[in-house]
Design a protein around this nucleic acid. Structure first.
Ligand SMILES: [Mn+2]
Ligand SMILES: [Mn+2]
Ligand SMILES: [Mn+2]
Ligand SMILES: [Mn+2]
Lengths: 215, 215
DNA sequence: AATTAAATTTAGGCAAATCTAAAAATAGTT
DNA sequence: AACTATTTTTAGATTTGCCTAAATTTAATT
């Protein structure tokens, strides 16, 4: 597996969101910041290797082998992110770019030992589940803050958007994984929410609420 | 800097052994397990970037910028090797291949934090000095076991050959960095040495003695 | 000095991963 | 059903890093 093949595979996996449905060329191209024609080339290559199903003009979908492969890359990515935060004191908004590189390091022993060093974590710094050696993982049964009713309360268990900008916004407003959050009110006009976050009260826009998971 | 450029630069640096002299194309090709014509191509590219001096048929030598760059790659390599041994319980014969990959990860913060986690180590698992952020390092003033007289004694501070085969030989005979070693006798015929290693006595061939550093 | 040997470079080509521009297929709309 | 718009693929080119084979330069030997 080349680095590029791994990146395509991971993107296809994420776009499919665990489902089996087929992913269109354009969506992959946009996500990878590349051109549709490049995607077509790679689709053929991945199909030749048995990692995706591909029929002309029909998009791609993952095979069993492809899913397994993708999960192993995701596992590496999230373990490295966890390492960076837990052991090297990176902030949660600084880890993704570096993990994009580290996820391609080839060494089974390395990743197993890393897993052990981190005490076999189940979730990464953004609340995303870390697949185990055999691809198994437990997703939190979480809800988007934006879809909960007034009065609901729970604990922040993850974020949907993990862009640096969004994570820094959350830092500034002291929203982090593990924080208890209660919905005090909802503004009908723009969908913004009044929240109690720990001790404090804050108002967040609908856009923000769409990217925070509660449990 | 591409991965390939970094690998060439590091090889040229190591072949030069810190000296300023010029390195021939063939030597680089052999070390990199590639062809001389490929080396010529890369020599031009590195020269264009100001990392080596290159004149047709005259071999290459490193520029100041090239040395600085090479030292930063060596720093990364040796810090990662140290990490693998100290934090992930790798054996000293298992780290090189993985470090060959890890040394190309681009993140200044990552390497500085790693340095900190390891408590700013001065030497890697093979006794080689780890350059600091600004390229400074202290080489042990060490001697090859093969070049010391009978009666000499000291402490093993490094190995010249760090191949897996050699390191495993050393493990088997309980020779490791930090072990006190004394030369009890020398066989004139084949140059083999009788040693006291810690408590035990061992005989090692000349070839072995040529790859152990004492201080 | 001429010849041979070795080292090095050039020329031309190939595979991976990308691109642009044009062609083909599919989907959406009158 | 026919036309239009969108999506997707093909064709041909480019860059990087590598190769082989041939030409060139330098080094070593008669
Ligand atoms: Mn990430
Ligand atoms: Mn993550
Ligand atoms: Mn090494
Ligand atoms: Mn080393």
């Amino acid at each position: 597996m080349t680095r590029s093949e791994e990146n395509y595979l991971k993107t296809i996996f994420h776009l499919g969101n665990g489902d089996v449905g087929s992913i269109n060329t354009n969506a992959i191209a946009e996500q990878m910041e590349t051109k549709p024609s490049s995607v077509t080339d790679m689709a053929k290559k991945l199909a030749d290797k048995g990692l995706v199903h591909y029929k002309k003009y029909q998009g791609v979908s993952m095979t069993e082998a492809g899913i397994k492969m993708a999960l192993s890359i995701v596992r590496k990515h999230r373990l490295w992110e966890t390492f960076l935060v837990e052991k090297l004191d990176f902030a949660w908004d600084e880890v993704h770019e570096v993990a994009e590189q580290l996820e391609h390091i080839k060494s089974e022993k390395l990743i197993d030992k890393l897993d052990q060093l981190l005490d076999f974590p189940k979730y990464d710094p953004h609340g995303d589940p870390i697949p185990g050696k055999n691809g198994e993982f437990q997703e939190h049964n979480k809800d988007l803050l934006s879809e909960l009713p007034v009065g609901a309360h729970g604990v922040c268990v993850g974020v949907k958007d993990s862009s640096s900008a969004f994570l820094q916004y959350l830092d500034k407003h002291e929203i982090s994984i593990g924080k208890p959050i209660q919905i005090l009110g909802k503004e009908a006009f723009d969908g913004s929410l009044q929240l109690r976050i720990g001790e404090r009260e804050h108002t967040v826009s609908h856009q923000i609420a769409c990217n925070i998971y509660l449990k």
